Amino acid sequence: MNKIIDIQELGLKEYKEAWEYQESLFQGIVDTKIKNRREDTDLETPNYFLFVEHPHVYTLGKSGDMSNLLVDEKQLAEKGASFYKVNRGGDITYHGPGQIVGYPILDLDNFFTDIHKYLRLLEEMIILTLAEYGLKAERSPGETGVWLDVGTPFARKICAMGVRASRWVTMHGFALNVNADLGYFDNMIPCGIRGKAVTSLNVELGVKKVPMDEVKSKLLKHFAYLFEAELQPQEEKV
């Protein structure tokens, strides 16, 4: 089982371009698994973890409700935002500058074949990272993602999640608000859940900006621990 994770930093990239790149990595792993089964070979499957920021974009999951987007095409253009229907789980979400988007593209046969466990470990990675900033983040029953002040009138979401898996290969992932412009969330009903607010790490800490690289480093540390994985940072590749 290959537990090496190829870490890739994509920078600021249009959603569609990043989605197509994800699909190519995902399909490469699936094709290898099919070849192994058909030809009785034992080729190693790779694992990837992509970090990216997107220009303003709204995405709707395959089970999502279009009415949760509260602006029309003209208003989207005025806000400099795009919109895509995508092949992940979950409802509607927003991505934009100041948000850390992570796409783990893993062959879970290298780790464990349990999607529920996979999502819970991704949430735990976020929870442990936020704890390093003195925040008590937690899960909200029946609602994937990471929240603050669950069970109170002040409950607010800081990290959204939505994944796709086929043949135990994952894609899509999480979006953690670090220095996000929260005004863009007013144009939708986040994840289709009415009456709950969203927040960002810089808002919770009362600072103008939190270093993104610092947060990414903490995320990877906890990811490696939880998945018992070996990270291969981009600069170390031959």
Rank of each mutant, 00 (worst) to 15 (best):
T113V: 13
R120T: 14
M125D: 11
W147L: 03
G96W: 12
I100N: 11
I115L: 15
E132L: 11
D114S: 09
E138G: 12
F112D: 14
R167W: 10
G98Y: 11
T113H: 13
G151P: 06
C159W: 00
S140Q: 00
S140M: 00
K117V: 12
N110I: 05
W168Y: 09
K117G: 11
A165E: 08
A155S: 11
D109M: 13
L135I: 15
L119R: 11
T152W: 03
R164W: 09
D149I: 01
F154Y: 11
T113I: 13
V163L: 06
I105K: 13
A137H: 06
T129M: 10
A155K: 03
D114Q: 06
Y118V: 08
T144H: 00
V101R: 00
G142N: 03
S166R: 08
K136I: 10
I100M: 01
M161L: 08
A131T: 13
P141C: 04
T152Y: 01
W168P: 04
F112T: 13
I127D: 00
D149P: 00
G102D: 09
L130S: 08
E138N: 11
G134P: 09
I127K: 08
P97V: 15
A137W: 01
G151F: 02
T129I: 13
C159T: 07
I158E: 07
A160Q: 03
G134N: 07
D107P: 07
I115W: 07
G96C: 09
P141M: 00
Y133I: 09
L135Q: 05
F112R: 13
I127P: 04
I115A: 11
Y133K: 07
G151L: 07
D114F: 04
F112V: 11
F154S: 12
K136N: 12
A155G: 04
A160S: 07
G98C: 10
R120W: 08
Q99I: 15
R139P: 06
H116R: 15
R164G: 01
L135G: 06
Y103N: 07
V101K: 08
D109T: 14
G145N: 02
W168K: 00
E138M: 02
L106F: 14
L130W: 08
W147D: 04
W168I: 04
L108Y: 11
Y103T: 05
M125I: 15
T113G: 10
Q99E: 06
N110R: 07
T113E: 15
G162P: 05
G134M: 05
R120K: 14
L122E: 09
A131K: 15
E132D: 14
L122C: 14
A160W: 09
